[in-house]
Design a binder for these strands. Structure first.
Lengths: 221, 221
DNA sequence: TTATTAATTTAGGTTTGTCTAAATTTATTT
DNA sequence: AAATAAATTTAGACAAACCTAAATTAATAA
Protein backbone atom coordinates (compact mmCIF):
# COMPACT_ATOMS: atom_id res chain seq x y z
CA UNK A 1 0.00 0.00 0.00
CA UNK A 2 2.09 2.87 -1.25
CA UNK A 3 1.05 6.46 -0.92
CA UNK A 4 0.59 8.87 -3.76
CA UNK A 5 1.00 12.62 -3.97
CA UNK A 6 -1.96 14.92 -4.38
CA UNK A 7 -0.87 15.52 -7.97
CA UNK A 8 -0.59 11.86 -8.80
CA UNK A 9 -4.01 11.26 -7.27
CA UNK A 10 -5.58 14.03 -9.31
CA UNK A 11 -4.14 12.59 -12.50
CA UNK A 12 -5.31 9.07 -11.67
CA UNK A 13 -8.79 10.26 -10.85
CA UNK A 14 -9.06 12.35 -14.02
CA UNK A 15 -7.92 9.45 -16.20
CA UNK A 16 -10.50 7.23 -14.55
CA UNK A 17 -13.29 9.65 -15.37
CA UNK A 18 -12.15 10.28 -18.94
CA UNK A 19 -11.87 6.54 -19.53
CA UNK A 20 -15.58 6.13 -18.83
CA UNK A 21 -16.32 8.04 -22.04
CA UNK A 22 -13.69 6.80 -24.45
CA UNK A 23 -11.70 3.66 -23.74
CA UNK A 24 -8.35 5.37 -24.07
CA UNK A 25 -7.37 8.83 -22.89
CA UNK A 26 -5.31 11.32 -24.88
CA UNK A 27 -2.74 13.84 -23.70
CA UNK A 28 -4.82 16.79 -24.81
CA UNK A 29 -8.01 15.54 -23.17
CA UNK A 30 -6.26 15.12 -19.86
CA UNK A 31 -4.53 18.49 -20.21
CA UNK A 32 -7.93 20.12 -20.72
CA UNK A 33 -9.48 18.25 -17.80
CA UNK A 34 -6.69 19.19 -15.42
CA UNK A 35 -6.09 22.66 -16.82
CA UNK A 36 -2.43 21.85 -17.34
CA UNK A 37 -0.16 21.91 -20.37
CA UNK A 38 0.28 18.80 -22.54
CA UNK A 39 3.98 18.67 -21.68
CA UNK A 40 3.10 18.26 -18.00
CA UNK A 41 0.81 15.38 -18.83
CA UNK A 42 3.57 13.56 -20.69
CA UNK A 43 5.88 14.01 -17.72
CA UNK A 44 3.37 12.54 -15.33
CA UNK A 45 2.45 9.68 -17.63
CA UNK A 46 6.08 8.57 -17.65
CA UNK A 47 6.04 8.55 -13.90
CA UNK A 48 2.71 6.72 -13.59
CA UNK A 49 3.89 4.20 -16.15
CA UNK A 50 7.04 3.53 -14.14
CA UNK A 51 4.78 2.91 -11.14
CA UNK A 52 2.68 0.55 -13.26
CA UNK A 53 -0.49 2.58 -12.79
CA UNK A 54 -1.09 3.29 -16.48
CA UNK A 55 -0.49 1.54 -19.77
CA UNK A 56 1.27 4.06 -21.95
CA UNK A 57 3.12 4.08 -25.25
CA UNK A 58 4.29 7.48 -26.57
CA UNK A 59 1.76 9.06 -28.96
CA UNK A 60 -0.69 6.22 -28.31
CA UNK A 61 -2.71 7.52 -25.36
CA UNK A 62 -3.07 5.75 -22.04
CA UNK A 63 -5.43 3.93 -19.71
CA UNK A 64 -5.26 2.78 -16.11
CA UNK A 65 -3.87 -0.64 -15.23
CA UNK A 66 -5.82 -2.88 -12.86
CA UNK A 67 -3.77 -1.46 -10.02
CA UNK A 68 -4.35 2.10 -11.26
CA UNK A 69 -8.07 1.47 -11.32
CA UNK A 70 -7.95 0.16 -7.78
CA UNK A 71 -6.21 3.33 -6.65
CA UNK A 72 -8.71 5.49 -8.55
CA UNK A 73 -11.65 3.77 -6.88
CA UNK A 74 -10.10 4.44 -3.49
CA UNK A 75 -9.82 8.15 -4.26
CA UNK A 76 -13.37 8.27 -5.59
CA UNK A 77 -14.57 6.48 -2.48
CA UNK A 78 -12.95 9.13 -0.28
CA UNK A 79 -14.30 11.96 -2.41
CA UNK A 80 -17.88 10.72 -2.41
CA UNK A 81 -17.96 9.81 1.26
CA UNK A 82 -16.79 13.31 2.13
CA UNK A 83 -19.41 14.78 -0.20
CA UNK A 84 -22.04 12.76 1.58
CA UNK A 85 -20.75 13.91 4.96
CA UNK A 86 -20.66 17.56 3.94
CA UNK A 87 -24.15 17.44 2.54
CA UNK A 88 -25.84 15.19 5.07
CA UNK A 89 -24.13 16.20 8.30
CA UNK A 90 -22.76 19.69 7.76
CA UNK A 91 -25.68 20.82 5.58
CA UNK A 92 -23.64 22.11 2.69
CA UNK A 93 -25.71 22.69 -0.43
CA UNK A 94 -25.16 20.25 -3.27
CA UNK A 95 -23.18 22.71 -5.35
CA UNK A 96 -20.68 23.47 -2.57
CA UNK A 97 -19.63 19.96 -1.62
CA UNK A 98 -17.47 19.16 -4.61
CA UNK A 99 -14.78 21.80 -4.10
CA UNK A 100 -14.26 20.97 -0.43
CA UNK A 101 -14.25 17.23 -1.10
CA UNK A 102 -11.50 17.82 -3.66
CA UNK A 103 -9.22 18.69 -0.74
CA UNK A 104 -10.48 16.18 1.80
CA UNK A 105 -10.15 13.27 -0.62
CA UNK A 106 -6.37 13.46 -0.43
CA UNK A 107 -6.24 12.65 3.27
CA UNK A 108 -5.45 9.02 2.86
CA UNK A 109 -5.86 7.32 6.22
CA UNK A 110 -7.67 4.06 5.47
CA UNK A 111 -8.97 3.88 8.99
CA UNK A 112 -10.40 7.38 8.77
CA UNK A 113 -12.36 6.55 5.65
CA UNK A 114 -13.65 3.22 6.87
CA UNK A 115 -14.78 4.79 10.15
CA UNK A 116 -16.38 7.68 8.31
CA UNK A 117 -18.20 5.19 6.10
CA UNK A 118 -19.48 3.38 9.18
CA UNK A 119 -20.48 6.65 10.85
CA UNK A 120 -22.47 7.67 7.79
CA UNK A 121 -24.24 4.31 7.70
CA UNK A 122 -22.52 2.93 4.59
CA UNK A 123 -24.24 5.24 2.08
CA UNK A 124 -24.34 3.85 -1.45
CA UNK A 125 -24.74 7.11 -3.37
CA UNK A 126 -23.32 10.58 -2.90
CA UNK A 127 -25.47 13.73 -2.99
CA UNK A 128 -25.12 13.92 -6.79
CA UNK A 129 -26.44 10.37 -7.12
CA UNK A 130 -23.07 8.86 -7.97
CA UNK A 131 -22.33 5.46 -6.44
CA UNK A 132 -19.76 5.21 -3.62
CA UNK A 133 -17.26 2.33 -3.93
CA UNK A 134 -17.20 0.07 -0.86
CA UNK A 135 -14.02 -0.67 1.07
CA UNK A 136 -13.20 -3.45 -1.38
CA UNK A 137 -13.44 -1.01 -4.29
CA UNK A 138 -16.72 -2.47 -5.50
CA UNK A 139 -18.97 0.09 -7.12
CA UNK A 140 -22.58 -0.12 -8.28
CA UNK A 141 -23.64 0.74 -11.78
CA UNK A 142 -24.66 4.32 -12.04
CA UNK A 143 -28.41 4.36 -12.48
CA UNK A 144 -28.56 7.91 -13.67
CA UNK A 145 -29.91 8.72 -17.10
CA UNK A 146 -29.73 11.98 -18.94
CA UNK A 147 -33.01 13.86 -19.03
CA UNK A 148 -32.70 13.85 -22.80
CA UNK A 149 -33.18 10.09 -22.96
CA UNK A 150 -35.99 9.24 -20.57
CA UNK A 151 -39.43 8.21 -21.77
CA UNK A 152 -42.39 10.62 -21.79
CA UNK A 153 -44.64 10.94 -18.75
CA UNK A 154 -42.39 9.01 -16.40
CA UNK A 155 -41.66 10.66 -13.07
CA UNK A 156 -37.97 11.34 -12.60
CA UNK A 157 -35.88 12.99 -9.90
CA UNK A 158 -32.95 15.23 -10.71
CA UNK A 159 -29.85 13.81 -9.03
CA UNK A 160 -26.87 15.09 -10.90
CA UNK A 161 -25.76 18.00 -13.01
CA UNK A 162 -22.97 17.37 -15.48
CA UNK A 163 -21.66 20.91 -15.52
CA UNK A 164 -20.90 23.23 -12.63
CA UNK A 165 -20.41 26.43 -14.60
CA UNK A 166 -22.12 29.55 -13.33
CA UNK A 167 -23.95 29.97 -16.63
CA UNK A 168 -25.40 26.49 -16.16
CA UNK A 169 -26.35 27.22 -12.56
CA UNK A 170 -27.96 30.48 -13.60
CA UNK A 171 -30.10 28.68 -16.13
CA UNK A 172 -31.06 25.93 -13.68
CA UNK A 173 -32.06 28.57 -11.18
CA UNK A 174 -34.17 30.39 -13.74
CA UNK A 175 -35.94 27.18 -14.75
CA UNK A 176 -36.39 26.36 -11.07
CA UNK A 177 -34.67 22.99 -11.39
CA UNK A 178 -32.62 21.71 -8.45
CA UNK A 179 -31.14 18.45 -7.21
CA UNK A 180 -34.13 16.53 -5.91
CA UNK A 181 -36.64 18.24 -8.20
CA UNK A 182 -39.33 15.80 -9.33
CA UNK A 183 -40.45 16.26 -12.91
CA UNK A 184 -41.80 14.63 -16.05
CA UNK A 185 -41.01 15.04 -19.74
CA UNK A 186 -44.30 15.77 -21.49
CA UNK A 187 -43.20 16.17 -25.08
CA UNK A 188 -40.10 15.97 -27.24
CA UNK A 189 -39.92 18.32 -30.24
CA UNK A 190 -38.27 16.63 -33.19
CA UNK A 191 -37.09 19.82 -34.78
CA UNK A 192 -34.51 20.74 -32.13
CA UNK A 193 -34.89 17.95 -29.58
CA UNK A 194 -36.11 20.48 -27.03
CA UNK A 195 -38.27 19.09 -24.25
CA UNK A 196 -41.44 20.21 -22.56
CA UNK A 197 -41.08 19.70 -18.82
CA UNK A 198 -43.71 19.61 -16.12
CA UNK A 199 -42.96 20.18 -12.45
CA UNK A 200 -45.80 19.64 -10.01
CA UNK A 201 -47.87 22.76 -9.33
CA UNK A 202 -46.07 24.70 -12.02
CA UNK A 203 -46.89 25.49 -15.59
CA UNK A 204 -45.05 23.41 -18.19
CA UNK A 205 -42.01 24.96 -19.84
CA UNK A 206 -39.38 23.90 -22.35
CA UNK A 207 -35.66 23.33 -22.10
CA UNK A 208 -33.06 22.95 -24.81
CA UNK A 209 -31.39 19.74 -25.84
CA UNK A 210 -28.05 21.04 -24.56
CA UNK A 211 -29.46 21.61 -21.09
CA UNK A 212 -31.33 18.29 -21.01
CA UNK A 213 -28.14 16.41 -21.77
CA UNK A 214 -26.45 17.86 -18.71
CA UNK A 215 -29.26 17.06 -16.30
CA UNK A 216 -29.27 13.53 -14.93
CA UNK A 217 -32.19 11.86 -13.23
CA UNK A 218 -33.24 8.66 -11.53
CA UNK A 219 -36.70 7.18 -12.05
CA UNK A 220 -38.82 7.89 -9.03
CA UNK A 221 -42.26 7.27 -7.59
CA UNK B 1 -6.91 36.04 3.48
CA UNK B 2 -4.01 34.38 1.74
CA UNK B 3 -3.46 30.67 1.70
CA UNK B 4 -0.39 28.93 3.00
CA UNK B 5 1.29 25.69 1.98
CA UNK B 6 1.21 22.65 4.22
CA UNK B 7 4.88 23.22 4.96
CA UNK B 8 4.40 26.84 5.90
CA UNK B 9 1.51 25.88 8.13
CA UNK B 10 3.55 23.23 9.89
CA UNK B 11 6.33 25.73 10.57
CA UNK B 12 3.91 28.35 11.87
CA UNK B 13 2.21 25.88 14.17
CA UNK B 14 5.51 24.56 15.52
CA UNK B 15 6.78 28.07 16.22
CA UNK B 16 3.55 28.85 18.06
CA UNK B 17 3.95 25.84 20.31
CA UNK B 18 7.65 26.42 21.00
CA UNK B 19 6.94 30.06 21.80
CA UNK B 20 4.69 29.00 24.67
CA UNK B 21 7.74 27.68 26.50
CA UNK B 22 10.42 30.22 25.72
CA UNK B 23 9.54 33.63 24.34
CA UNK B 24 11.81 33.30 21.35
CA UNK B 25 12.42 30.24 19.22
CA UNK B 26 15.83 29.10 17.95
CA UNK B 27 16.75 27.45 14.68
CA UNK B 28 17.88 24.26 16.38
CA UNK B 29 14.75 23.96 18.52
CA UNK B 30 12.54 24.24 15.50
CA UNK B 31 14.72 21.83 13.52
CA UNK B 32 14.33 19.27 16.30
CA UNK B 33 10.58 19.83 16.54
CA UNK B 34 10.04 19.43 12.80
CA UNK B 35 12.71 16.75 12.28
CA UNK B 36 14.34 18.91 9.62
CA UNK B 37 17.85 20.26 9.22
CA UNK B 38 18.76 23.71 10.54
CA UNK B 39 19.51 24.92 7.00
CA UNK B 40 15.93 24.19 6.03
CA UNK B 41 14.67 26.23 8.96
CA UNK B 42 16.72 29.23 7.90
CA UNK B 43 15.31 28.97 4.37
CA UNK B 44 11.76 28.96 5.64
CA UNK B 45 12.33 31.76 8.14
CA UNK B 46 13.44 34.01 5.32
CA UNK B 47 10.25 33.21 3.51
CA UNK B 48 7.99 33.67 6.52
CA UNK B 49 9.75 36.92 7.30
CA UNK B 50 9.12 38.20 3.80
CA UNK B 51 5.45 37.34 4.34
CA UNK B 52 5.54 39.22 7.65
CA UNK B 53 4.56 36.20 9.68
CA UNK B 54 7.67 36.12 11.88
CA UNK B 55 10.06 38.62 13.36
CA UNK B 56 13.51 37.38 12.45
CA UNK B 57 17.05 38.74 12.51
CA UNK B 58 19.82 36.33 11.47
CA UNK B 59 21.36 34.51 14.46
CA UNK B 60 18.82 36.11 16.80
CA UNK B 61 15.97 33.58 16.76
CA UNK B 62 12.39 34.35 15.78
CA UNK B 63 8.82 34.71 16.99
CA UNK B 64 5.46 35.07 15.32
CA UNK B 65 4.10 38.48 14.41
CA UNK B 66 0.52 39.35 15.34
CA UNK B 67 -0.54 38.15 11.92
CA UNK B 68 1.51 34.97 12.29
CA UNK B 69 -0.19 34.27 15.60
CA UNK B 70 -3.58 34.76 14.00
CA UNK B 71 -2.71 32.22 11.32
CA UNK B 72 -1.37 29.79 13.92
CA UNK B 73 -4.58 29.97 15.93
CA UNK B 74 -6.56 29.19 12.79
CA UNK B 75 -4.50 26.07 12.18
CA UNK B 76 -4.80 24.99 15.80
CA UNK B 77 -8.54 25.55 15.64
CA UNK B 78 -8.77 23.24 12.63
CA UNK B 79 -6.56 20.63 14.23
CA UNK B 80 -8.45 20.50 17.49
CA UNK B 81 -11.90 20.53 15.92
CA UNK B 82 -10.92 17.55 13.78
CA UNK B 83 -9.50 15.79 16.84
CA UNK B 84 -12.80 16.33 18.58
CA UNK B 85 -14.70 15.03 15.57
CA UNK B 86 -12.53 11.95 15.24
CA UNK B 87 -12.82 11.12 18.89
CA UNK B 88 -16.43 12.05 19.53
CA UNK B 89 -18.09 11.04 16.27
CA UNK B 90 -15.86 8.46 14.65
CA UNK B 91 -14.82 6.87 17.96
CA UNK B 92 -11.11 7.01 17.41
CA UNK B 93 -9.12 6.39 20.58
CA UNK B 94 -7.35 9.42 22.04
CA UNK B 95 -3.92 8.30 20.90
CA UNK B 96 -4.97 7.91 17.25
CA UNK B 97 -6.58 11.28 16.64
CA UNK B 98 -3.46 13.40 16.48
CA UNK B 99 -1.87 11.83 13.42
CA UNK B 100 -5.03 12.00 11.32
CA UNK B 101 -5.78 15.56 12.44
CA UNK B 102 -2.27 16.53 11.27
CA UNK B 103 -3.49 15.91 7.72
CA UNK B 104 -7.03 17.23 8.03
CA UNK B 105 -5.89 20.50 9.58
CA UNK B 106 -4.43 21.62 6.26
CA UNK B 107 -7.78 21.63 4.48
CA UNK B 108 -8.39 25.30 4.79
CA UNK B 109 -11.98 26.02 3.81
CA UNK B 110 -13.24 28.49 6.39
CA UNK B 111 -16.82 27.47 5.77
CA UNK B 112 -15.98 23.82 6.35
CA UNK B 113 -14.43 24.55 9.71
CA UNK B 114 -17.18 26.86 10.89
CA UNK B 115 -19.84 24.36 9.88
CA UNK B 116 -17.92 21.55 11.53
CA UNK B 117 -17.70 23.65 14.69
CA UNK B 118 -21.45 24.19 14.62
CA UNK B 119 -22.11 20.51 13.94
CA UNK B 120 -19.98 19.52 16.91
CA UNK B 121 -21.82 21.98 19.16
CA UNK B 122 -18.99 24.51 19.56
CA UNK B 123 -16.78 22.34 21.76
CA UNK B 124 -14.33 24.31 23.89
CA UNK B 125 -11.73 21.59 24.51
CA UNK B 126 -10.32 18.83 22.35
CA UNK B 127 -10.02 15.21 23.54
CA UNK B 128 -6.64 15.96 25.10
CA UNK B 129 -8.13 18.82 27.11
CA UNK B 130 -6.55 21.54 25.00
CA UNK B 131 -8.73 24.58 24.34
CA UNK B 132 -10.15 25.12 20.84
CA UNK B 133 -9.87 28.68 19.48
CA UNK B 134 -13.23 30.12 18.38
CA UNK B 135 -13.82 31.49 14.89
CA UNK B 136 -12.40 34.84 16.00
CA UNK B 137 -9.18 33.16 17.13
CA UNK B 138 -10.03 33.59 20.82
CA UNK B 139 -8.67 30.82 22.96
CA UNK B 140 -9.23 29.99 26.61
CA UNK B 141 -6.38 29.61 29.05
CA UNK B 142 -5.27 26.05 29.25
CA UNK B 143 -6.34 24.80 32.65
CA UNK B 144 -4.14 21.76 32.56
CA UNK B 145 -1.42 21.27 35.12
CA UNK B 146 1.31 18.71 35.12
CA UNK B 147 0.72 15.89 37.58
CA UNK B 148 4.09 16.77 39.09
CA UNK B 149 2.81 20.09 40.35
CA UNK B 150 -0.63 19.48 41.80
CA UNK B 151 -1.25 19.54 45.55
CA UNK B 152 -1.60 16.34 47.58
CA UNK B 153 -4.99 14.70 48.04
CA UNK B 154 -6.76 16.75 45.41
CA UNK B 155 -8.80 14.79 42.90
CA UNK B 156 -7.56 15.26 39.38
CA UNK B 157 -8.53 13.90 35.97
CA UNK B 158 -5.95 12.96 33.36
CA UNK B 159 -6.66 14.95 30.24
CA UNK B 160 -3.44 15.15 28.29
CA UNK B 161 -0.23 13.26 27.75
CA UNK B 162 2.76 15.28 26.63
CA UNK B 163 4.48 12.47 24.77
CA UNK B 164 3.08 10.01 22.28
CA UNK B 165 6.01 7.62 22.11
CA UNK B 166 5.27 3.92 22.32
CA UNK B 167 7.53 3.59 25.37
CA UNK B 168 5.40 6.22 27.10
CA UNK B 169 2.18 4.50 26.07
CA UNK B 170 3.52 1.16 27.26
CA UNK B 171 4.28 2.62 30.67
CA UNK B 172 0.87 4.33 30.91
CA UNK B 173 -0.81 1.07 30.06
CA UNK B 174 1.19 -0.79 32.68
CA UNK B 175 0.31 1.78 35.34
CA UNK B 176 -3.30 1.65 34.17
CA UNK B 177 -3.48 5.39 33.53
CA UNK B 178 -5.62 6.67 30.64
CA UNK B 179 -7.19 9.89 29.51
CA UNK B 180 -10.10 10.39 31.85
CA UNK B 181 -8.53 8.46 34.75
CA UNK B 182 -9.43 10.05 38.09
CA UNK B 183 -6.61 9.97 40.63
CA UNK B 184 -4.98 11.67 43.59
CA UNK B 185 -1.37 12.31 44.54
CA UNK B 186 -0.90 10.91 48.05
CA UNK B 187 2.78 11.64 48.68
CA UNK B 188 5.75 13.26 47.05
CA UNK B 189 9.19 11.78 47.81
CA UNK B 190 11.80 14.47 48.12
CA UNK B 191 14.68 12.25 47.18
CA UNK B 192 13.71 11.73 43.54
CA UNK B 193 10.44 13.64 43.27
CA UNK B 194 8.60 10.41 42.59
CA UNK B 195 4.90 10.40 43.46
CA UNK B 196 2.60 7.97 45.16
CA UNK B 197 -0.64 7.80 43.21
CA UNK B 198 -4.04 6.47 44.23
CA UNK B 199 -6.71 5.44 41.75
CA UNK B 200 -10.10 4.51 43.16
CA UNK B 201 -10.47 0.83 43.96
CA UNK B 202 -6.81 0.16 43.27
CA UNK B 203 -3.78 -0.12 45.50
CA UNK B 204 -1.52 2.96 45.54
CA UNK B 205 1.59 2.85 43.37
CA UNK B 206 4.42 5.21 42.52
CA UNK B 207 5.46 6.92 39.33
CA UNK B 208 8.69 8.67 38.43
CA UNK B 209 9.17 12.41 38.17
CA UNK B 210 9.79 12.05 34.41
CA UNK B 211 6.46 10.37 33.90
CA UNK B 212 4.56 12.77 36.17
CA UNK B 213 5.83 15.72 34.17
CA UNK B 214 4.34 14.32 30.99
CA UNK B 215 0.90 13.64 32.45
CA UNK B 216 -1.45 16.60 32.54
CA UNK B 217 -4.61 16.84 34.61
CA UNK B 218 -7.52 19.07 35.37
CA UNK B 219 -8.91 19.40 38.87
CA UNK B 220 -12.08 17.43 39.15
CA UNK B 221 -14.86 16.58 41.53
C1' DT C 1 40.80 37.99 25.76
C1' DT C 2 41.81 34.59 22.90
C1' DA C 3 40.79 29.89 21.55
C1' DT C 4 37.51 26.52 21.11
C1' DT C 5 32.93 24.89 20.53
C1' DA C 6 28.24 25.35 19.29
C1' DA C 7 24.73 27.48 16.58
C1' DT C 8 23.44 29.41 12.44
C1' DT C 9 23.71 30.76 7.77
C1' DT C 10 25.32 30.40 2.95
C1' DA C 11 26.33 28.01 -1.24
C1' DG C 12 25.12 24.79 -4.11
C1' DG C 13 22.53 20.42 -5.18
C1' DT C 14 18.13 17.23 -5.55
C1' DT C 15 13.27 16.03 -6.31
C1' DT C 16 8.59 17.09 -7.58
C1' DG C 17 5.64 19.23 -10.45
C1' DT C 18 5.03 22.70 -13.30
C1' DC C 19 6.06 25.62 -17.55
C1' DT C 20 7.63 27.39 -22.68
C1' DA C 21 9.57 26.65 -26.98
C1' DA C 22 11.34 23.61 -30.23
C1' DA C 23 11.38 19.11 -32.30
C1' DT C 24 9.06 15.07 -33.63
C1' DT C 25 5.36 12.01 -34.74
C1' DT C 26 0.75 11.14 -36.34
C1' DA C 27 -3.34 12.56 -38.79
C1' DT C 28 -5.58 15.03 -42.46
C1' DT C 29 -5.89 17.31 -46.91
C1' DT C 30 -5.32 18.07 -51.43
C1' DA D 1 1.82 10.60 -51.81
C1' DA D 2 3.36 14.91 -50.54
C1' DA D 3 2.17 18.90 -47.89
C1' DT D 4 0.13 20.81 -44.09
C1' DA D 5 -1.92 20.73 -39.62
C1' DA D 6 -2.58 18.85 -35.18
C1' DA D 7 -1.05 16.25 -31.34
C1' DT D 8 2.60 14.84 -28.61
C1' DT D 9 7.13 14.61 -26.81
C1' DT D 10 11.73 16.45 -25.68
C1' DA D 11 14.81 19.87 -23.92
C1' DG D 12 15.68 23.06 -20.81
C1' DA D 13 13.98 26.33 -16.96
C1' DC D 14 11.87 27.46 -12.64
C1' DA D 15 9.87 27.48 -7.82
C1' DA D 16 9.13 25.00 -3.53
C1' DA D 17 11.00 22.48 -0.05
C1' DC D 18 14.20 19.86 1.24
C1' DC D 19 19.30 18.32 1.74
C1' DT D 20 24.94 18.33 2.66
C1' DA D 21 29.12 20.59 3.35
C1' DA D 22 31.52 24.71 4.09
C1' DA D 23 31.70 29.28 6.02
C1' DT D 24 30.41 32.48 9.40
C1' DT D 25 28.79 34.30 13.77
C1' DA D 26 27.89 33.88 18.65
C1' DA D 27 28.71 31.69 22.99
C1' DT D 28 31.90 29.51 26.25
C1' DA D 29 35.89 28.16 28.46
C1' DA D 30 40.79 28.57 29.28
Amino acid sequence: MLNFSTSEENYIKAIFHLQQEAGTVTTNDLAAELKARPASITDMMKKLKSKKLVHYQPYRGFRLTTEGTRIALGIIRRHRLWEYFLSEKLKFSWDEVHAVAEDLEHVSSKKLIDKLDEYLGYPRFDPHGDPIPDNQGKIEKNQQVSLSEIPLNKTAIVCHVGDQSSSMLELMKHKNIRIGTRLEVKKRFDFDQSLEIKIRQQLPFTISEQLAKKIFVKYGP
